[in-house]
């Protein structure tokens, strides 16, 4: 890896995506690894990210890509890639809480193991390969509460408030329990 990076004059490298979105993300601590079927396989795709890039943004972008690309034939990929998109959005947007990264990984393994074809079997790789290398990055996104619902509680009450013609404090819900 280092040889290729030197040859192409890459500086200030954060990490590499080898083999496209379904391949492997490697950190800048692994540049002694080799481009080979036995190590890092690729059909040619080799993406270099510098330190101005955000790892979670990369995983987020690729995960949305796979949810869009799923043909929908099998349950694990059709529903799973969309659930993965939702779960990652929840974490990246700062609504994750304890247990959400564990749930994210559980979902990745399910999609990887049970999908019918290679798309589903590799769709979780952007999350899995970055989660393996930067677990603290995912954890640091989580709120220090035990649980936050996956949707906006107060917004969900809007129709009921309008119908009941009230807007007092009792007609509103906090998203999380304030202790």
């Amino acid at each position: 890896m280092q040889e290729i990076l030197t040859d192409c004059g890459a500086e200030d490298v954060l990490g590499l995506q080898i083999g496209g979105p379904s391949g492997t993300f490697i950190s800048n601590q692994e540049f002694d690894r080799k481009l080979a079927f036995e190590d890092l396989a690729t059909g040619g795709s080799f993406i270099v990210f510098n330190n101005s890039r955000n790892i979670l943004d990369i995983a987020h972008n690729f995960t949305h890509f796979f949810a869009h690309e799923s043909c929908g034939f099998c349950t694990p990929c059709r529903v799973g890639t969309s659930l993965l998109k939702k779960q990652l959005d929840k974490i990246v947007e700062g609504h994750g809480s304890a247990g959400d990264v564990v749930a994210l990984e559980e979902l990745c393994q399910l999609i990887k193991t049970h999908s019918h074809c290679g798309l589903g079997q590799t769709a979780a790789n952007p999350v899995l390969t970055t989660l393996e290398r930067y677990p603290e990055l995912y954890q640091s996104q989580l709120k220090l509460i035990s649980y936050e619902p996956g949707f906006d509680l107060d917004a969900a009450l809007e129709t009921a408030r309008r119908m009941a013609n009230r807007d007092d404090a009792g007609a509103h819900l906090a998203q999380i329990d304030v202790e």
């Binding site: 349950t75 694990p76 059709r78 529903v79 799973g80 659930l83 399910l110 193991t113 049970h114």
Partner: peptide, 13 residues
């Protein structure tokens, strides 16, 4: 366990 998760996927979809 995995079959149950796949069934749950069908339910929430």
């Amino acid at each position: 366990d995995d079959r149950k998760l796949i069934t749950q996927m069908l339910f929430v979809e």
